[in-house]
Design a protein around this nucleic acid. Structure first.
Lengths: 191, 191
DNA sequence: CGCGACGTTGATTTGCCTCAACGATTGTGG
DNA sequence: CCACAATCGTTGAGGCAAATCAACGTCGCG
């Protein structure tokens, strides 16, 4: 049950929730193990799931017309990841979700989440806050992309998430920052 | 009450809500008029408000170390705007909110919104969905910024919001896209 | 009217990309 | 357990999209 403890702590950071309510929602989260480089979801699937990372690291990415990947999210332990576009709209996903390391996950489907909202209304508040924070983070990322040069964006990222620099391949960090691996390699050399 | 009709429609697009609940929440929204180029909030203020645009157009922007403005949001009628960073964290705002046209607004404070969540719980769902959508839009914008050239980003923007091209000064659209006014002027020439 | 905001155009510069080659490390099948 | 391939990161050369710098026309408004 240790994997659930991390999730419960994550929920309790944002809302007050009783033991009974916790007991009600836990069964809806499915424990899943995934090997490095395996896809949790592929582009074009209906990704009606949100994933909480208990152990490991995941990324989501899209593929453009020329076949180039673009990393849109990187999630380490205690973070949430998923193709929120597909999750929210119900349309086929534009993003794939892939494990960067062997990972241990707790996965909730959109269908089950709707049931949780009915059975445990406080969770509506939890996810409201989760998406508020995600939106703020995305806004800051856009702002940084429009204001700062690549080297500063990299420094800000590894200051916020130091372990990303050690655990995540350069090629994915570069893509997340919107630059090429060659450019990031040169940026690292100059630090 | 016409200004409230637009807001009520906006809420009903996302949730089923009774007339009684509507009646409860309406008084919390304050009607406000603002003149072109006037600030609704300045950087450094505590912006504990969210704004629904009934008529007109607003933008939010930050200012970087070199004194350059960077537009982070543009909101026309029926859209929401605010410094969500300050709204969510309670910290002094990093973004200013300014009227691009003379505008008619409905403004809700964080304090009153918390009271609404208690009195009209369905509104928790409404804002959960609002932020879900805002997050998805922000993600798509990041993805476009990392995948597409400036001219395509501009074309996509005016395809989605045709009236932006007519109503919003080029200088603000350019800033929103993360390019200079000179570049956007040249892009327009080539269309 | 006169000033400031806005948009345009040209000349030049630059940050990052593209293309290419090449070690180092990791993973895999025989 | 080794051999080989694939992945990952580095470095160099050259190119390009967009920035910068500068000048100027137009419009709206106090």
């Amino acid at each position: 049950m240790n994997e659930h403890k991390l999730l419960i702590d994550n929920i309790r950071e944002k809302v007050n929730i009783s033991e009974e309510d916790i007991a009600k929602l836990i069964p809806y989260f499915k424990l899943k193990y995934i090997k490095k480089k395996k896809d949790l979801n592929r582009i074009g699937d209906n990704c009606n799931e949100l994933t909480f990372v208990v152990e490991g690291a995941l990324r989501s990415y899209s593929i453009d017309d020329k076949g180039n990947e673009h990393v849109s999210q990187i999630a380490l332990e205690e973070y949430w990841i998923g193709d929120v576009f597909s999750f929210v709209t119900g349309k086929p996903s534009l993003f794939a979700v892939e494990a960067i390391e062997d990972s241990k996950l707790l996965v909730i489907s959109a269908y089950d989440l709707d049931r949780i909202y009915l059975e445990v209304p406080i969770m509506e508040r939890f996810f409201r806050k989760l998406f508020e924070n995600a939106y703020v983070a995305a806004t800051m990322r856009i702002n940084s992309s429009n204001s700062d040069q690549a080297d500063l964006r990299y420094k800000t990222l590894i200051k916020t998430f130091p372990s990303i620099a050690e655990r995540i391949p350069l090629i994915h960090i570069a893509s997340y920052l919107g630059i090429t691996p060659e450019s990031l390699s040169r940026i690292r050399k100059n630090i």
